[in-house]
Design a protein around this nucleic acid. Sequence first.
DNA 1: TTTTCTGCAAAGCTTTTGCATAGCT
DNA 2: AGCTATGCAAAAGCTTTGCAGAAAA
Lengths: 136, 136
Amino acid sequence: MNKYIDWLEQKNIRVTANKTAILEVLDKHKHLDAVQISSILDTQNTHISQATIYRVIAELEKHEIISKLNFGNEHSVYEIQCAESHHDHLICLECGLVVEFTNEKIEELQLEIANSKGFSVITHSLNLYGKCSKCN
Amino acid sequence: MNKYIDWLEQKNIRVTANKTAILEVLDKHKHLDAVQISSILDTQNTHISQATIYRVIAELEKHEIISKLNFGNEHSVYEIQCAESHHDHLICLECGLVVEFTNEKIEELQLEIANSKGFSVITHSLNLYGKCSKCN
DNA sequence: TTTTCTGCAAAGCTTTTGCATAGCT
DNA sequence: AGCTATGCAAAAGCTTTGCAGAAAA
């Protein structure tokens, strides 16, 4: 509860029930798009207008409390970013399972490659698509 | 010219002027979305209805002649896939420059990671976002 | 009190679909 | 001839915006 309020206050964002409700949904069910967030809130009898959902998401993303991810063909999905370290994703194309991972060597190699092409890296996204152990 | 016809024939797709025109645009200007393809064709006095552009893109993607890419916030863009080996992308957040690269070690590490999580990898996408040498 | 947030309804964009005609093989 | 492709217009989705009233600091 207070966790979400803390995140907002740390970024000097006005605290409202809508914002904490959206953060709570995203914290419990990761990797949701705006429409899914809306649906889950409706299920919980916490209806929030779509306009507000989009506005809140945009603000949270701007302040780096949540981050936008692209998993292949679908729409962008969001996950909590603050209080979490960077990670990459393994996505099961069969059942949709998402597993997070980090790998130091890959991060290093990425910097080397960027360097060799004259790029400085600000961020990156690495998604591995395949089948999880259950779907194989 | 004939290159595009060959690609289509190899996949048993009916050859039409619209399809070869769209392939030609994508071959010359990489990483375009549907609207950009439409605009470029209009510039060349080769108007193709949007419905057709979307239908052709979908068919070309389904047959793996082109592939869809997500570069961060924007819409999906497309690039020629057939006759090109897999590669990853460095994207300049300032000027939009896209540089392609491949790295054997990263590919190997990806397989190792996936293995350790019980995943088999079908495909992957690795995008490095930053600033190119000109924009730094 | 002042600023920001919110809902509603409308508008904007991108993408998809139905249907009749045109084009490829 | 038979099957697929195409254009047009309409529909469907998702996202954004204007505005007036509500809530937070």
